[in-house]
């Protein structure tokens, strides 16, 4: 009888532990997942104010501006319909260039620009982030209609 009760306590303890861990994980998940938006969605106001998200598209040709000798860069991310100005204050990745696909993590600022804390351009010339590819394709068919 005692053995059985002890086992019951053990099982209950384990179930409680798993439940707590699961709950915490879900909580962490809900508050820390970042969604992807393209410039059209940003322009349409789909991003909640202050929300951290990933902005993806192409770096607009001729949009890269840097004050000589400064770390800060500004460029525009475009899906060929809308564009979002981006500010970034760290070292750009190797494959970052105008006309190439890019994904930036960060938040919108009050002045309508996107302050990025991380910029990703992947290690492959042909590579385009799938979300960016899809978002661009969507744009093509839409504009084709």
């Amino acid at each position: 009888m005692i053995a059985r009760r002890r086992r019951l306590v053990l099982v209950l303890g384990i179930v409680a532990g798993v439940a707590v861990a699961g709950g915490l994980a879900l909580q962490a998940f809900r508050s820390n997942v970042t969604f992807f938006f393209d410039p059209t969605q940003v322009a349409a106001g789909e991003v909640k104010p202050g929300q951290r998200f990933r902005l993806g598209g192409m770096v607009k040709e001729g949009s890269l501006i840097r004050q000589a000798g400064e770390l800060e860069v500004r460029f525009a991310v475009t899906d060929f319909k809308r564009e979002v100005p981006v500010v970034y204050r760290n070292v750009l990745p190797d494959l970052f260039r105008e006309g190439a696909g890019v994904v930036a993590h960060g938040r919108m600022q009050a002045d309508g620009s996107f302050l990025a804390d991380e910029v990703l351009a992947k290690h492959d010339e042909k590579y385009m982030p799938p979300e960016v590819a899809r978002s661009l394709k969507k744009g093509e068919t839409r504009s084709g209609m």
Binding site: A28, N32, V33, F35
Partner: peptide, 10 residues
């Protein structure tokens, strides 16, 4: 459900 990403924050 949209493209989401899960990072170190999670």
């Amino acid at each position: 459900q949209g493209a989401l990403s899960v990072g170190p924050q999670y």
